[in-house]
């Protein structure tokens, strides 16, 4: 048997994965090869050292740290979901408030009958309507941009604060239990 084959067998023997026939072959080789004998002794010594090495114990704070990081992650997730929901709600509310203005614009430009009857005038009237809507939006943006932005920001802050209060209450409840 060649020394290269014996190397893997020695490692397998340390792991208890050799059968009796293979062990006998290995023993025979070791009895006649001083180089492999020396390697076998050093592998056994290494095995002894590693087997005697204990587990490194986790610091006591590890569990607390993991749970704190999980809680923080949950808080952020809830704050994002809550804030997004409130912001979307605010936008929906703003659109509902603006709806009468758009309906009024439609009436004012008298485009509805033209749209129904069709014809070349429709395109001209449609373009006129779009122009009017664009101008109206500019006026609205000038007038309401600041309050709407403020409202959105206020909603977001409110959402974060409510989430914070909710998480605080849950935390106290857990602590009380």
């Amino acid at each position: 048997m060649r020394c290269e084959q014996v190397g893997e067998m020695m490692s397998a023997r340390l792991d208890g994965r050799l059968g009796s026939t293979e062990i006998a072959l290995l023993e025979d080789h070791l009895a006649t090869c001083s180089a492999c004998q020396a390697e076998w002794r050093s592998l056994q010594e290494l095995d002894r050292v590693l087997l005697s090495a204990p587990m490194a114990r986790a610091p006591v704070r590890l569990r607390m740290q993991v749970m704190a990081r999980l809680n923080r992650r949950e808080q952020v997730r809830r704050a994002i979901i809550g804030g997004t929901a409130l912001a979307l709600g605010t936008v929906a509310l703003a659109l509902l408030m603006l709806a009468p203005i758009f309906i009024g614009l439609l009436d004012a430009t008298d485009i509805a009958p033209a749209l129904v009857s069709g014809g070349p005038e429709t395109i001209i009237q449609l373009l006129a309507l779009l122009g009017a809507v664009g101008r109206a939006l500019l006026v609205l943006a000038e007038k309401f941009a600041a309050p709407l932005a403020f409202l959105g920001l206020f909603s977001l802050v409110l959402a974060l604060a409510l989430n914070g209060l909710w998480m605080g209450a849950v935390h106290r409840l857990h602590a009380a239990q």
């Binding site: 587990m55 490194a56 114990r57 986790a58 610091p59 590890l62 569990r63 993991v66 749970m67 999980l70 809680n71």
Partner: peptide, 22 residues
């Protein structure tokens, strides 16, 4: 259930820490 997960952390914190340390 985070409480149950906390128990799993408690049970396995040393094996995981030891592996990371080694």
């Amino acid at each position: 259930d985070q409480v149950a997960f906390g128990r799993l952390v408690m049970a396995y914190q040393t094996p995981v820490y030891n592996l990371a340390y080694r």
